[in-house]
Amino acid sequence: MMAQALLDIVGLSKRFGGFVALDGVDLNVKQGERLGLIGPNGSGKSTLVNCICGTLHNEGGSVKFDGKKIDGLIAHQRTRLGLARSFQLPRPFVGLSIADNLRVPLIYTVHAREGRRFTRAEMEDHCGEFLRLVGLADKAKKFPRDLSMVELRKLELARAMAAEPKLLIADEAMAGLSHSEVDDILALLARLSERGITIILIEHIMRAVMAFSQRVAVLVSGKKIADGLPQDVMRDPEVERAYLGQ
């Protein structure tokens, strides 16, 4: 089992001044797995994502991705290795059209990885494919300001997808969305999973987490307190205490 771990985090720690945001977190994710990561607000979920993706640098412990230690690598280098993320609050490139937003990871990640440039037609093909995948094909020429919240979140996922990652981390991709919109995003994530992409879903909406995840990990105050099958984790008394109080 350990041999197939795509992401292997050991003893990861991060502090902000005197505040310990992550305290020796161990986590591993297997190739092709769908992992749900939950935890109350401020429990360190986003910090963990930032440390995995290189937006922040961890002080202790190590992150191994695809068998390679990636501590110390800059964010864009990790992206090129096959780590992609979406942001909790969508961060589109507002000055670029929707199609151009997707061109950026194609140019800067896929090109760099394959060591060759796409032709104009290949580029159009790829952009079109990802836009269709998330259902934004008719908005290719629009700008981020013309999109609704759910569309922005889809754009976020499409942009992460366009980097052709091995591991996708969706950081609260569904927060603030309606019931049917959550289903939309879930269906989209399921489609990505079918393509063989490993996915970590960070989410507060339990319905979504339970429907999507094969395994759930729980983070509380920077520590992992549970990790296992979704039903087992939900019954864990420690998890209940963290969420509902004593």
């Binding site: 290189g54 864009h76 961060r91 490139f93 000055g95 950026v104 140019i107 992460a160």
Partner: peptide, 18 residues
């Protein structure tokens, strides 16, 4: 394209491999 992503959002640019 790279310059434009830096103008818009550097963190997101890095995450896209820039």
């Amino acid at each position: 394209y790279g310059f434009a992503t830096i103008r818009d959002d550097e963190v997101a640019a890095e995450a896209s491999g820039v």
